[in-house]
């Protein structure tokens, strides 16, 4: 079951500026969904459409199969990239205000806020003015406000910007804990290492178009290069001669008495065939598929798409 389905979403600013071009996208319930793309690709606009801050020109977005409506706002939590707080207002008062805007009663909001403030060890901030807090501290408050109404869909736009590594780690832990509890998380970022760590589905938007989507597993499979790293001791020259016809040697270097070779399989050959060819020539001490990093996939996909356009 999908928590969110976007069907044929178009969005333009003015007459000539296309921001989202025919986006079809599904976000599975309970997943951590990475929404990736270069700056200005249209991610934030798509997120704003989900939050009903703006509406698509064409197309429809469904929340659990119902067309998006104001009633859904209370089931969504949103931490925008451009986020801030009233500087002169006290932390507790402000958290209470924003929670009530999300539809919580004063009583419920107070109870949950107390719980979170204790959990994060920030009770003593309650009566302080926001301007007295550091930026990282403010980010923590914003995180609490985002998740307080226990939404089923959470949207974090660049959540790690402005966090030090310790707080970023805490945030990752909290995100995974929320996932455990059954929330779906949309996660927009440039930080590819955190995508690899957290996401199980991704979509890549470039220049208003969706160019890549699917589960991490599937995408990795799609982007596999059929290259393998070998650790080999034996007659390298003979091996090179043997492999040259059906395989492509992409890289090769020697370290101490070992030869390290990256081989790409051509003509739908299998790894077993490669190994059979190698075994008579020497001793195979290591064999591993070269897995593309998210970073590589991102750059590769975006560059191909930009070239195609």
């Amino acid at each position: 079951m999908n928590i969110l389905d976007a069907e044929g979403v178009y969005k333009t600013f003015g007459a000539d500026h296309l921001v989202l071009n025919n986006i079809h996208l599904s976000i599975p319930e309970g997943s951590v969904f990475g929404l990736l793309g270069p700056n200005g690709a249209g991610k934030t606009t798509f997120i704003r459409i989900i939050n009903q801050i703006t509406a698509p020109d064409e197309g429809q977005v469904y929340f659990r199969r119902e067309p998006l409506s104001p009633g859904h706002i209370e089931r969504i939590g949103y931490l925008p990239e451009e986020r801030g707080l009233y500087k002169k207002m006290k932390v507790g008062e402000q958290a209470l205000y924003l929670a009530r805007l999300k539809g919580l009663s004063r009583h419920d909001a107070l109870k949950r806020l107390k719980h979170w403030f204790v959990k994060l060890g920030i009770e003593e901030w309650w009566g302080k003015k926001v301007e007295e807090l550091s930026k990282g501290m403010q980010q923590k408050i914003q995180f609490v406000i985002t998740v307080l109404h226990e939404p089923s869909l959470l949207i974090f736009d660049e959540p790690f910007s402005g966090f030090d590594p310790i707080n970023a780690n805490m945030l990752k832990r909290e995100i995974l804990e929320l996932k455990e509890k059954g929330s779906t998380i949309i996660f927009s970022t440039h930080n590819m290492s955190s995508v690899e760590e957290l996401c199980d589905h991704i979509a890549l938007i470039n220049d208003s178009e969706l160019i890549l989507k699917g589960s991490m597993e599937q995408i990795r499979k799609d982007f596999r290069s059929h290259s393998y790293e070998l650790e080999f001791t034996g007659n390298y020259n003979k091996m090179e001669a043997t492999l040259s016809s059906d395989y492509q040697i992409e890289n090769s270097f020697q370290k101490e008495d070992k030869q390290y070779i990256t081989v790409k399989l051509l003509h739908n050959l299998t790894t077993n065939q490669l190994i059979q060819q190698l075994l008579p020539l020497g001793n195979l001490t290591g064999f591993k598929e070269v897995i593309p990093s998210m970073n590589d996939i991102f750059i590769h996909a975006v560059e191909n798409h930009t070239k195609a356009v």
């Binding site: 939050n51 801050i53 104001p70 706002i73 969504i76 949103y78 931490l79 925008p80 451009e82 986020r83 801030g84 707080l85 009233y86 500087k87 924003l98 805007l101 999300k102 539809g103 914003q142 406000i145």
Partner: peptide, 18 residues
């Protein structure tokens, strides 16, 4: 202007209409 420069406005309009 204060809400804009504080960057709180997007947080609020994700809960209420502008």
């Amino acid at each position: 202007i204060e809400e804009k420069t504080n960057r709180i406005v997007e947080v609020i309009i994700s809960s209420v209409k502008p």
